[in-house]
């Protein structure tokens, strides 16, 4: 009985692990909008619309990606590497509970973190 309960629990968990997710990836060295073309191409299969779901904040060197399903850190790092860059950090943004929000709404609503402050905070 206990095994069946655990199995049922695991099955119920599957849809939650496969949910869409927004990740913010800090990628130093990106200096022009052309950098984004390669990144959008690498994440083409992981998002609904690369032009809307993969956004670049050149000022803060942050790529924001709204994926169809959760991607591992290793997968994100590999895709950024294939774009010719290296990942410095990855931040996962909680998925909103409002079903009416579109991926673009989520991306616009989420304020980009102030990375300089984060870096300062990490210093001893």
């Amino acid at each position: 009985m206990n095994k069946k309960m655990i199995l049922l629990f695991l099955i119920l968990c599957i849809p939650f692990t496969a949910l869409a997710e927004t990740v913010k990836v800090f990628v130093p060295g990106m200096v022009c909008p052309l950098c984004l073309v390669g990144i959008q191409k690498q994440f083409k299969k992981d998002v609904e619309n690369p032009k809307k779901d993969v956004l670049l904040d050149l000022e803060n060197k942050i790529v924001t990606i709204h994926t169809k399903k959760k991607l591992s850190d290793a997968a994100i790092k590999q895709k950024i590497k294939n774009s010719g860059y290296e990942v410095k950090s990855i931040e996962r943004v909680p998925t909103p509970t409002d079903p009416n929000e579109t991926p673009s709404d989520v991306l616009q609503k989420d304020a980009l973190p102030n990375l300089e402050k984060q870096e300062e905070a990490k210093k001893p």
């Binding site: 060295g29 200096v31 060197k61 010719g84």
Partner: peptide
């Protein structure tokens, strides 16, 4: 061949 790439915070 890309021999070497240097990535800095605000330049490459």
């Amino acid at each position: 061949w890309l021999v070497k790439k240097w990535l800095n915070q605000n330049s490459q």
